[in-house]
Amino acid sequence: MVLNMQILKDEKAQGAAEYILLFGGVIVIAVVAAIFYRNYLTGLGNETNATDVQNITNQLQNLTSAVNQTG
């Protein structure tokens, strides 16, 4: 009877170790994905900002030209 209880304790420890390895693997995959997408999203954000700034600059130049023509 005591031997059976010892085997059950060993199996619980093995299950806990497997869960730790599983969660560790998921965390590693999540970190790699975050690094990959961070680089992708950072580049996308810079392009969007540069485009927006250029559009505003063009609109201000057009407005300035329109005001100068009427004045």
Rank of each mutant, 00 (worst) to 15 (best):
T64K: 07
V53W: 07
G24N: 11
N46P: 03
G71H: 02
I29E: 04
T48F: 08
G25M: 01
A13W: 00
N46D: 12
Q59N: 11
T42G: 02
Y19V: 14
L44T: 10
L21A: 13
T42E: 02
G25K: 14
D52K: 15
V2P: 07
I7F: 03
N46G: 11
Y37G: 05
V53R: 12
I29Q: 09
N46H: 13
N46Y: 05
A34L: 03
T42Y: 01
T57F: 01
I35A: 05
L8Q: 08
L3G: 12
I29C: 06
F36A: 13
I20T: 14
N46E: 12
A50C: 00
G71Q: 11
G24R: 07
V32T: 08
G24C: 02
A66E: 09
N46F: 08
N55F: 04
G71Y: 02
M5L: 10
G24F: 01
Q59V: 05
E47C: 02
L41D: 06
Q54D: 14
L63G: 02
L22M: 15
Y40A: 07
F23R: 15
T70I: 10
V31D: 06
N46R: 15
A13P: 00
Q54E: 11
A17H: 11
V28R: 12
I29Y: 09
G71R: 05
G25Y: 08
A16P: 04
E18W: 08
Y37D: 08
V31K: 09
L21T: 14
T57G: 04
A34D: 02
A66T: 14
L60V: 07
I27G: 04
Q59S: 12
I56H: 01
V67G: 01
T64R: 07
F36M: 06
I27N: 11
L8N: 14
N39R: 15
S65L: 04
V31W: 00
L63A: 09
N39V: 11
N62T: 13
N46L: 04
G24P: 01
K9P: 00
Q61M: 12
N62M: 09
G45V: 07
L60F: 06
I20D: 13
G25V: 04
N39H: 05
L3H: 12
A50G: 01
G43L: 03
I27L: 10
G71C: 00
V2W: 03
N68T: 10
V2A: 09
T42S: 05
G71V: 09
N62E: 08
Q61K: 13
G43V: 02
Q54K: 12
A17W: 02
L22Q: 15
N58I: 04
L63N: 11
L22R: 15
E11V: 07
Q61G: 02
Q59L: 03
N4V: 13
N55K: 14
Q6C: 04
L44Q: 13
D10W: 06
A30E: 08
G15W: 00
